[in-house]
Design a protein around this nucleic acid. Structure first.
Lengths: 337, 337
DNA sequence: CTGAAAGCGCTTACAG
DNA sequence: CTGAAAGCGCTTACAG
């Protein structure tokens, strides 16, 4: 399969419709400065409407590529998403271009320039903050995109794929409650991320349903990384009335809690229960194996790839926002009080 | 920078040199069947010699891409290598196409077909077994390649980038010896991999230098994955005279040993010392933090990318085999007997 | 700022 | 199996 086979518009067609010459359209396409603003706007509008994409003359072998963009390639779950995307793309004869834009605008600009040159079929973003000018540019180029695990409220008309973070937060909390825990600490992710807030709210909902008040001293503000889990765990263990369980809203923070517990000479789950969120591959092989909320990362990547390929084919997507189910995986880090 | 800027050969030039028409060269290029074997061979030879690569008419924006190929995307160190490669490629305006070929020849064929369509600038392999026909085809297409952490003895004239596995095995062993350990277990990686054998030999060399005999019952055959580390650790702990330290030749196996130790109700490093190999990001945040031999994976990726880009520019590579230094990182999983 | 003209590198019928 | 011809989609001077 090659993406976007059918009758694609040529610049000749666009030029005719816009009432300008072919070279003029070419200039707009290449971002040359010597085009009047009105002309540029009219042509761009048409390019967008028709979903124009550059194609080599007579060539049926248009290199099909999709771009998969991360903030940084330092998270262990990146590879899970890559795996899902690559799987679908590979089968469709499409290459997966992986990039990290590091939140730096120079890097993003560079990336965008490369993107144009390689005439990508679509973009999957796994980044927390998309700069509006970047998005505008992509829309101008009429490049299909989908956003995985959106951080904030995403722009309209961009399909997003996430997980049921709220439900995951709730189920982890209910699990701990069912084991008899009443003092349950929570280590949150960055506030600006939607998924962080949803997990926290799931935790709150669980406690409230059990008639337990949420205590400030049992809430710790983390950032999803190990260090903050360690700090949060250490802080809570030092309380006069420490929690009997800690729910860290990422696996990495849960491992940080493990280390805080160990440093105190205590044991998981004998002295304190720990729950994570993500189910990274290493969760299964932590000591003890970590009870955690599984996020189907590979499946999210899979779905994102399918969606972007469909968009590239010009199909309409009926459900612009999808949340895949999370799943509580009970292992050995949780026990009855 | 765009790779291979300079004067690239066109099919017109090739046709002239071969004494055939342009359409004939085009046919060879596209793998059409209606070309006589002699003609095909002559043309292919010239294409190879000149390092021909398809280019869009008049277009200076040739999409620069390098391919990064793994067996599977299930190893936590894959992302480390991706990071290194992406870093260099991104800066050079080159896209990084990540693929997994899953050792299945159908998948490899599919990949090769996609590769041709996208006119890659070069390929970095991180795979243990390259099928000879695949290699032959790549060579025929004149695509530069480099192999990272070669599994077996690599084909001549393909640059390889590895790590000093033997030295790493030695230094880990010496570290344990210096702590007073005399009974040191070893969990090996797959025998067919060069790196496995080098690590094992480093371990042997260390023991021999200290006048200690290598005991069969302290050697366990693993496969680099968690399960085998767990099995190896469990088996050794059941010995009448168990080791006081275990050197697992991958971090994942070391984590398996952690779990075997925990299941026995013992503690690392109080009851037994454990050393790993790789220094994955999670090694630092294991409980306890893992003493391990660091392999500079990101740097290996970096170097591989630089090398393949240089080859793509037509440069000669003076040192076809490079081994980057490993480094013993001492953390909390090792202690004096 | 724009277009007519020339041209690029490649591919596709068509004819033999 | 091969080539002369036509043509594709696009870009680049050049002229105004």
């Amino acid at each position: 399969m090659t993406v976007g086979e059918g009758r694609r518009v040529t610049i000749t067609a666009i030029a005719a419709e816009a009432g300008v010459s072919v070279p003029t359209v070419s200039r707009v396409l290449n971002g040359r400065s010597d085009v009047s603003p009105q002309t540029r706007e009219r042509v761009e509008e048409l390019l967008r409407q028709h979903g124009y994409r550059r194609r080599a003359a007579r060539s049926r072998v248009s290199a099909s590529l999709i771009d998969l963009v991360f903030n940084d390639l330092d998270s262990p779950w990146a590879v899970e998403i890559i795996r899902g995307v690559e799987d679908v793309a590979h089968a469709a004869g499409v290459g997966t271009v992986v990039s990290a834009i590091h939140q730096r605008s120079t890097s993003a600009r560079q990336w965008l320039q490369n993107l144009r040159a390689r005439a990508t079929d679509g973009v999957i973003f796994v980044v927390s903050d998309l700069s509006p000018p970047l998005l505008a540019e992509l829309r101008r180029l009429n490049i299909p995109m989908v956003v995985v695990d959106p951080a904030g409220v995403p722009a309209v008309d961009t399909p997003t794929i996430g997980a049921t973070n709220w439900a995951g937060g709730l189920s982890a909390t209910e699990h701990l409650l069912s084991l008899g825990h009443r003092r349950i600490g929570f280590i949150a992710g960055p506030k600006r991320l939607l998924c962080s807030r949803a997990r926290l709210d799931g935790y709150r909902a669980g406690l409230e349903a059990a008639g337990i008040e949420v205590e400030e001293e049992l809430l710790f503000q983390g950032d999803f990384y190990h260090e903050s889990g360690f700090a949060g765990g250490a802080a809570m263990l030092e309380l006069d009335d420490p929690p009997t369980a800690i729910f860290a809203s990422s696996d990495q923070m849960a491992f940080g809690v493990y280390e805080a517990v160990r440093r105190r000479g205590l044991r998981v789950p004998d002295d304190i229960s720990v729950v994570g969120f993500d189910d990274l591959p290493e969760a299964r092989w932590a000591s003890p194996p970590l009870t955690t909320v599984r996020q189907p990362l590979a499946e999210m990547g899979l779905l994102a790839a399918r969606t972007v390929l469909r968009l590239a084919q010009g199909e309409e997507i009926e459900t612009p926002r999808i949340e895949l189910a999370t799943d509580l995986v009970i292992r050995d880090s949780t026990a009855a009080v």
